[in-house]
Amino acid sequence: MKKIIAILFLLVLSYGIYLSINSIPFGVSKTKVGNYYNLNGVKDTGANNIVTAVVLNYRGFDTLGEVTVLFLAVLGFSTILFTMKKKKSDNMPTPPSLILSIGCKFLFPFVLLFGIYIFIHGHLSPGGGFQGGAVIASAFLLFYLVKPSEKSSKKSFQLIESLSGMAFIVIGILGLVFGNYFLSNFLPKGIAGKLISAGIIPLIYIFIGIKVGSELTGIIDRLMGKNNEKQVK
């Protein structure tokens, strides 16, 4: 009965969505602001990747808000899990297979390097701080899979995360001091296409990459952390 009501409701809903979506043309240019970014983005910001230019230059303040949302979500996550009761149990986790442990030893530095490459080249090629941070966190996930008993230092991750978040804001305030407004691009823009160009964009993306990487690693660490506590006791 519940399923039939749900399906009927969704049918009505999808008909309504169809009526409104039908009037949106597909595959044509719609917004003026997107065109403006495409035509003038390189000249304005010095970044080859227009998406990065939008994220960090035109809408840098917005990105600061989004990073704050991410921080709050991770904070809430660790607050919920912090007061958890630690139950004692004797079952040891099964040790990883030979392939996994050798593969991790081989792959870990390369995955880390790839993540760093992605966020350093965020203003030139596809990628950026958020994606690079996720790749770095996946490297640590591999590490935790191999060594579940390894105690990581949660404190240092939190320290790195807070420092890089503060660095973002400090760069913004420096823009207020040297430029005209918060997060203004006060460094020289350089030649578009070179690694050192686009002013503060690569700097901010490096900090975002470190921040996202340490936040996601902290999430993985907390979710796998239950086993660690059991073993230590």
């Binding site: 240019s29 719609k30 917004t31 602001v33 997107g34 065109n35 970014y37 495409n38 035509l39 983005g41 227009i50 998406v51 230019a53 939008v54 994220v55 809408r59 990105t63 989004e66 949302v69 991410l70 979500a73 991770v74 809430g76 996550f77 919920i80 899990l81 950026g128 958020f130 994606q131 941070g133 996720a134 996202v212 936040e215 996601l216 999430i219 907390r222 979710l223």
Partner: peptide
């Protein structure tokens, strides 16, 4: 640049994906 796709939704979704991962972790917690 005239035939490039709109960069604005891509920039929004870029951050939305990472935030959705964090909120998903919070829901799981």
């Amino acid at each position: 640049p005239k035939i490039m796709v709109d960069p604005l939704p891509q920039a929004m979704v870029l951050t939305a994906i990472v935030i959705s991962v964090a909120t998903l972790a919070m829901a799981l917690a």
